[in-house]
Design a protein around this nucleic acid. Structure first.
Lengths: 153, 153
DNA sequence: CTCGGTGCAAATGCTTTGCAATGTC
DNA sequence: GACATTGCAAAGCATTTGCACCGAG
């Protein structure tokens, strides 16, 4: 994700909502997210911000993540764990996740037919979709191989 | 779900695992679940058991739910909320969920094409699937109508 | 100057754990 | 009788809240 474009997007949203303010804290959090690859959680983001010298509280991290989700900058997921996971949403196609139960790795995939089926289902049920998330839990190649090796050994 | 069949399924699983025991508590929890319609959470199940005179601790409810999930009697989901949700898995087709963000209602649907696509994706990624869950978040008919009425009013 | 944002510490809510007592096999 | 299971209370963890202070507009 392009940092400047993301900042612009946030600024626009803040203004459009009328009472929301642009603050250094929010920009710092956005920067940290822009530099992130893949999925992250609130604690990790907090840690990275603190490590890089920015002082911030966990509460603010959570608040800010909620705000960013509302304006579409990030997506929030709940997989199997206790904690929420986030990822950049800016400029990315709608995709889904393969989650390895052994190593926790997350693979992504895009499938247009899948999206169409979702639309069809919603139409037939008179349901207005807002977002969706397909999670396939299982075992990735790496871990299948590891298991086979262990069995043989 | 048929109560007897469920009990049988549990008994078989307990024996197959070698060290697991069949206890009145486990059977009581299973009974309570069999009588449940739709989704439920740990707290609700605990409350229903206590209300019906069975003494049980929350810890046991959680342990037992984990056990039932392992043997495939129930499915565990994490939607948007903080708490895990469960539902009977016995004798039900693989289905997915439409979750209303307004009223919290959960609609279910089955779609064979969807399942096929999932298989294809897994094959192409060399991923061995174990379970999957498609969650579509949005607004149900009822709530769309309510909102429209409010706008007009 | 006003009202939204932030940090801190405490509180909350769901879930797990440690341990002694109980009950199954 | 051995060891899995249970209940209880306490602990654990992610997240939220209350409130005083700070700072953007």
């Amino acid at each position: 994700m392009n940092g400047e474009a993301a900042q612009e997007m946030l600024q626009k949203y803040l203004k459009s909502q009328g009472k929301l303010r642009s603050t250094p804290t929010r920009m710092a959090v956005l920067d940290a997210i822009v530099q992130t690859q893949g999925h992250f959680d609130a604690e990790g983001l907090y840690y990275r911000l603190m490590s890089s010298g920015k002082k911030i509280s966990r509460a603010t991290v959570y608040n800010t993540l909620d705000l960013f989700q509302e304006c579409g900058l990030i997506s929030k997921y709940r997989f199997a764990e206790n904690s929420s996971r986030y990822e950049k949403a800016f400029g990315r196609p709608h995709h889904h996740h393969l989650i390895c139960l052994q190593c926790g790795d997350i693979l992504e995939f895009v499938n247009e037919r899948l999206n169409k089926i979702q639309e069809e289902v919603c139409t037939s049920k008179d349901f207005t979709p807002h977002s969706s998330s397909l999670q396939i839990f299982g075992t990735c190649t790496k871990c299948v191989k590891t298991r086979e090796t262990e069995r043989k050994g």
